[in-house]
Design a protein around this nucleic acid. Structure first.
Lengths: 154, 154
DNA sequence: TTGATTCCCATAAAATACCATGTTATACCA
DNA sequence: TGGTATAACATGGTATTTTATGGGAATCAA
């Protein structure tokens, strides 16, 4: 069991004409420490990009393999959905990754990217969409105090 | 505890008149790192080609040997189908493989091949069939979100 | 021979590494 | 505590490498 690391904070960086963005330096530290890479994919539920370490996906692959069998339809659909959309992103010596057109479009990002830490994962939003989302979340919490015991309820 | 090796992303490459296709460079990297080879066979359930490293097929063979009761007779038959259908594909110095007529026909591929990462495996689709398949899966997810208990890590 | 497969070369485009600079954050010292 | 030196960072620009892909020569089988 190695060390664990959390993606934290909310950081806004510029996206240049080629789609390059600086990965927040805290995130880069995590990647280096774990000797892994960043993987990003379109969020299934929100107009944002989701990211995590390749470690985490690797673990997911193993879990899927052991909980479903080689020929199951579930395994087929799940793996298509997750791994087919995910892409590995390495950063150069200046710490930048190059997001793809597909991801940028899904998240409606043009010239600014907001990195939002989510623990083991993080998200990348456009400024406008993140402003809306943050407001939505805070509003929801104000009206309905969260509880850890019942997260699945809804 | 080595690096992780996952087939990711969705990449479309041309199939030229001779039947040659570039294997995505990420995939080639995996093959080189593992000192293995690519194996392809007709999907048992979809109009697509399925591929993986020879390593994985070996693992499947071992699994069958050591836990015959784990596999039903039907599944055992299916594995026979796979091994009988599977063929090794090496890529040339420019990174291309040459798919067989049998495989191309099964997947209805003419001039474009879509490589879809599935973690330990990948698939190769025609553009038209993949568009349909992706839509089917995303529609399914929209109506019934899969439970990925391990998505967050442990 | 013919038709197919493998290997090699050429090139355009895309991805990546590298360099330079202004800015911000951090460390250091009086 | 305040002020300055230093390091880290974000970001624009450029150079270099990798990759996909077309075409041709060499090899091989029937």
């Amino acid at each position: 069991m190695g060390k664990t690391f959390l993606f934290l904070d909310t950081i806004t960086n510029k996206v240049d004409a080629k789609g390059r963005v600086s990965l927040p330096s805290d995130y880069r530290t995590i990647v280096k420490e774990l000797s892994t890479e960043i993987v990003c994919y379109r969020s299934l539920t929100s107009p944002c990009i989701e990211g995590c370490t390749e470690d985490l996906l690797e673990k997911l692959a193993t879990d899927i393999e052991t909980s479903t069998d080689f020929f199951s339809e579930t395994q087929d659909d799940l793996t298509n959905l997750i791994f087919g959309d995910a892409k590995r992103f390495g950063f150069d010596s200046t710490g930048r990754i190059m997001l793809t057109e597909k991801l940028l479009k899904h998240a409606e990002i043009t010239d600014s990217a907001v990195f939002v830490g989510k623990g083991r994962k993080f998200q990348i939003w456009s400024e406008a969409n993140w402003a809306k989302e943050e407001q939505r979340i805070r509003e929801k919490v104000r009206q309905n105090r969260p509880t850890l015991k019942n997260e699945e309820g809804k």
